[in-house]
């Protein structure tokens, strides 16, 4: 068996099923967008942002989980050229790795049907999620700092952002409740790109809300269409990473930890809110580990969606 010098080849664990056809149809050269310890984002020739994630992260749209614990030892810089093929993604600089795609498990974003659920079921689940979020959520994004902490730490910028998020979320929910498409679009735009992080909190909130709206049988389909149009039109209002994430949420695709929570939320047969809360604690905790406040912000959006579903179903 040959063991002659071989380039640094990294097999993949799993990848988003939509990637394979996209890469097959659009081979060519792209470039490194951004490098983190556990994720390298690369811009594919088709213009799509693709994430090469460390294996311990969860599956997600446009993501390949490679057999690495972290990327910090690889010599990859933002802007480096990257060759894309159906079999592999190769960083075109000396000593840089090639990520092999063959053999990886394909990941599909699962959906949950909301068709036959009654208002009370949404209400109960909303109640449980609200409780867990209040207890476990990371404050500083959509969840506001508690009163005493605010006075101690917040500065003018943070206060403004917090106020913007609070008002924006309330206005968006009110607009959906009132079924005013123009308002929905306007208020969604107010949230788009609002917040300091790489995926601004406003976007995360929209992601959570639209992810629910994109599930079959949701009563929020109308709102989703309006938000989808706005997001499509204003791709320059937020970071590419955040925009990509949001656009996928609008299609019902999100990180596996969030989808798993969504699935547990509705598939879990729970006798009582307390029992459901007990079941959900672990998946909620996992989803909350996304980013700094991102997980919390996504779940806040999801919660707003649950409450809206409750109201919309109750009135029918």
């Amino acid at each position: 068996m040959k063991t002659s010098a071989r380039p640094n080849r990294i097999p993949s664990v799993s990848l988003d099923s939509v990637l394979l056809p996209a890469l097959r149809e659009n081979p060519g050269t792209g470039k490194v967008h951004s490098v983190f310890d556990r994720v390298i984002n690369v811009l594919a020739p088709c213009g799509q942002l693709v994430a090469l994630a460390a294996q311990q992260l969860d599956d997600a749209p446009w993501t390949i989980r490679a057999e690495v614990r972290d990327w910090s030892r690889e010599d990859v810089q933002a802007g480096d050229p990257v060759a894309f093929g159906a079999q592999q993604i190769r960083f075109e600089s000396p000593d840089a790795p090639t990520v092999l795609l063959s053999g990886a498990r394909e990941w599909f974003a699962k959906k949950v049907s909301l068709e036959h659920l009654a208002a009370e079921e949404f209400q109960m689940r909303g109640h449980v999620l609200a409780g867990l979020l209040d207890e476990l959520g990371i404050r500083g994004g959509i969840l506001e700092e508690s009163a005493q902490k605010e006075s101690a730490h917040a500065n003018a910028f943070e206060e403004q952002i917090a106020a913007g998020l609070r008002n924006g979320c309330e206005a968006l929910v009110a607009a959906i409740r009132a079924n005013q498409p123009d308002h929905i679009g306007e208020t969604a735009l107010q949230l788009l790109g609002l917040g300091p992080g790489l995926t601004p909190a406003g976007d995360d909130f929209l992601s959570g809300l639209t992810l629910l709206a994109a599930q079959p049988g949701s009563r929020l389909g109308g709102a989703r269409e309006v938000i989808s149009a706005v997001v499509g039109q204003y791709s320059d209002r937020t970071t590419l990473l955040s925009w990509t994430t949001l656009r996928e949420s609008l299609d019902g695709r999100a990180r596996e930890s969030v989808l798993e929570l969504l699935s547990q939320l509705f598939r879990q047969r729970a006798e009582s809110p307390a029992e459901l809360a007990r079941h959900l604690r672990a998946p909620v905790n996992r989803a909350l580990r996304i980013g700094h406040t991102s997980g919390t912000d996504i779940l806040s959006g999801l919660l707003a969606g649950l409450r809206l579903e409750t109201e919309l179903r109750g009135s029918m």
Binding site: R9, P11, Q87, L100, S102, G103
Partner: peptide, 11 residues
């Protein structure tokens, strides 16, 4: 067996 394949082969 899980591992890298020679060029041209699939799992």
């Amino acid at each position: 067996v899980i591992g890298p394949m020679f060029a041209g082969y699939k799992p």
